[in-house]
Design a protein around this nucleic acid. Structure first.
Length: 297
DNA sequence: TAAGCGTGGCA
DNA sequence: TTGCCAAGCTT
């Protein structure tokens, strides 16, 4: 490379991130100082499919109540599901609780640093494991989320939307990581940030994009490559809505206990309601005994 | 590989 | 109003 080369798009992206990144709680020094890897782990659990703005107040409350894996491990599932409130996908609350117990039992209460150890914890997959290893511990791994995949699809491949998720995504992101030690965290975060606030799914702000000059998709005239993500089923009238209604009533009930005939009694489809209750029991989110439903003790 | 799993904001 | 989308994971 000639000495007078233009700054690489990586450098431009990193500079943009340093100057323009959102000031989010988990990016602050005092957050890491106070909650350590546990804070990162909890934040990543909550951010799995739940928007940033909705996570922030719940994260604060959660960490105040359970500031360590050991503290979390002493809680009951009922307490955990109640504290999870309306963050959605409440199985994550159970998985986070289990993960805390596993951290205490297998790692002495210290959130592990190795990706393989993190992957062995409940509710932790490719994204969350590497997010903890990279964003908290500063190690070098590719961190691939929906934003990263979209940025790569557009910026590198010139396509409007990414193909279906695949293990190759990790490999490709790994090949893009900067070589310098310690830069992986910022680069991963910058790719995610770009996808979250500029290279968005619906109305990308290419005029604000720091690396627009090198973007394959923009230079191709932003073609619609026809890749469509799987359509999300209608929520209104779904089993998911029924599950949500049941769980909401149990969260709000005194001691989280309610007679089975008092749980969403006016649900329009009794068969669907019972199916929802059965599936909640199968998931360990609800317990049934003597005609009474409750959050698990 | 695909389906199932919450909830709410926004266009 | 309806549909899309959101720092994914498990089975």
């Amino acid at each position: 490379m000639p000495l007078s080369a233009e700054p690489s798009w990586r450098s431009v992206l990193l500079e943009w991130y340093e100057s323009d990144a959102r000031d989010l709680p988990w990016r602050r020094r005092e957050f890491a100082d106070r909650y350590g890897a546990w804070g990162t782990l909890v934040s990543e659990f909550m951010l799995q499919q739940t928007p940033v703005a909705r996570v922030i107040p719940h994260l604060q409350a959660w960490l105040e109540r359970w500031p360590s894996p050991a503290a979390m491990a002493t809680a009951t599932p009922a307490q955990v599901v109640h504290q999870w409130a309306n963050l959605g996908y409440p199985r994550r609350a159970l998985w986070l609780h289990r993960a805390a117990v596993q951290v205490v039992e297998k790692h002495g209460g210290v959130v592990p640093r190795e990706v393989s150890d993190l992957l062995a914890l409940s509710g932790i997959g490719d994204y969350t494991a590497r997010a903890v290893a990279v964003f908290h511990y500063g190690d070098t791994h590719p961190v691939v989320d929906t934003n990263t995949r979209r940025v790569i699809a557009r910026f590198i491949d010139g396509r409007s939307q990414p193909a279906s998720p695949s293990p190759r995504d990790l490999v490709r992101m790994g090949e893009l990581l900067p070589g310098a030690r310690g830069e992986a965290a910022v680069f991963n975060a910058a790719m995610m940030e770009l996808g979250a606030v500029v290279c968005t799914a619906r109305a990308p702000r290419c005029e604000e994009c720091p690396v627009a000059a090198q973007c394959a998709w923009l230079s191709a005239g932003r073609p619609d490559t026809g890749d469509r993500r799987r359509r999300q089923p209608r929520y209104e009238g779904s089993d998911r809505q029924a599950r949500g209604a049941v769980l909401r009533m149990l969260r709000d009930a005194p001691d989280h206990v309610l007679g089975a005939d008092l749980v969403v009694p006016d649900w329009p489809d009794a068969v669907q309601r019972d199916r929802a209750i059965d599936s909640l029991i199968a998931d360990g989110l609800v317990e049934a005994s003597d005609g009474v439903l409750a959050l698990p003790r």
